[in-house]
């Protein structure tokens, strides 16, 4: 006799239907999205349909405008993000090297790290005008603080742990820095970069929605105003794909150099 005792774990192993649950869910979602507007249950005007979306995607991707929008947005993002990385890493290491400097810089930086950088956009426009510069600036600010803050947090932690060991072996300041600080900060830097990518991308789109005459954000806004939901979604999905790709790239870097334990 096999006694019918329940397995102890609340989560039985995955197999069969369960494995395909995600695919099925997406298919059901798409089917409902296609059928409900056709039946008039929801207003197609506001939701569009996957088939319309597919048609719109073909049209949009074939247009030169899409690619120039994409190029503009990516340019704004790349310059702002690139500057942030180039400035933030040396800044973080420099400030981080001294506990006092760290203490002084931490509070204002933390304040700007926590506050949504988008609220500075009107101020940046006042300073830099409505052109490229203000958008690059807001991406810069959005990306800069996560990198610096995480570097500082990393150095803070390392000071506590590793450096004591280093001192025992009589390492010089420079040796400590290159052999202990630099490699040990890597996971923190990657956490910072992950946040920076997300916030930078969000900021460039938001800035384009706020004030712009071209770019992906502008186009999303424009198609929203004219209720071209199909085209709006094509552009929004473009943003998702960019976001997904970038987070995968960071994920690969993290697999190589990151510590999964840091969060």
């Amino acid at each position: 006799m096999r006694a019918p005792v329940r397995a102890r774990s609340g989560r039985p192993a995955a197999h069969g239907l369960e494995r395909w649950a995600g695919v099925i869910a997406v298919l059901v979602f798409l089917a409902l999205w296609e059928i409900l507007p056709r039946l008039g249950v929801v207003n197609e005007f506001f939701t569009s349909r996957p088939s319309l979306l597919a048609v719109a995607a073909v049209e949009v991707l074939a247009s030169a405008q899409y690619w120039s929008d994409l190029a503009l947005t990516m340019q704004e993002f790349a310059v702002g993000f690139g500057l942030a990385v180039v400035v933030a890493i040396p800044m973080g290491l420099l400030i981080g090297a001294s506990p006092i400097a760290r203490g002084i810089a931490m509070t204002p930086m933390m304040a700007l790290y926590i506050a949504p950088s988008m609220i500075l956009l009107p101020l940046l426009i006042l300073w830099l005008g409505v052109g490229l510069a203000s958008k690059i600036a807001v991406v810069f600010i959005a990306s800069y603080f996560p990198i610096v803050i995480n570097l500082l947090a990393g150095m803070d932690e390392i000071d506590g742990r590793l450096v004591r060991v280093g001192h025992v072996f009589g390492a010089s300041r420079l040796q400590l820095f290159s052999t202990i600080h630099l490699p040990a900060t890597m996971p923190h830097l990657l956490v910072g970069l992950r946040l920076a990518v997300g916030r930078g991308l969000l900021s460039v789109i938001a800035a384009e929605i706020f004030v712009s005459s071209a770019g992906i954000g502008y186009r999303i806004q424009m198609f929203g105003n004219s209720l071209r939901i199909d085209r709006l979604l094509v552009y929004a999905l473009t943003v998702s794909i960019i976001g997904y790709t970038m987070s995968r790239v960071i994920g690969l870097l993290e697999e190589r150099w990151g510590a999964r334990s840091v969060s």
Binding site: M1, R2, A3, P4, V5, R6, R8
Partner: peptide, 17 residues
């Protein structure tokens, strides 16, 4: 808490959980 083969009873009743 775990399934078994054979007979296992408490006060004459088989253990099923």
């Amino acid at each position: 808490l775990v399934p078994y083969d054979g007979r296992l009873t408490i006060n004459g009743a088989a253990v099923t959980g």
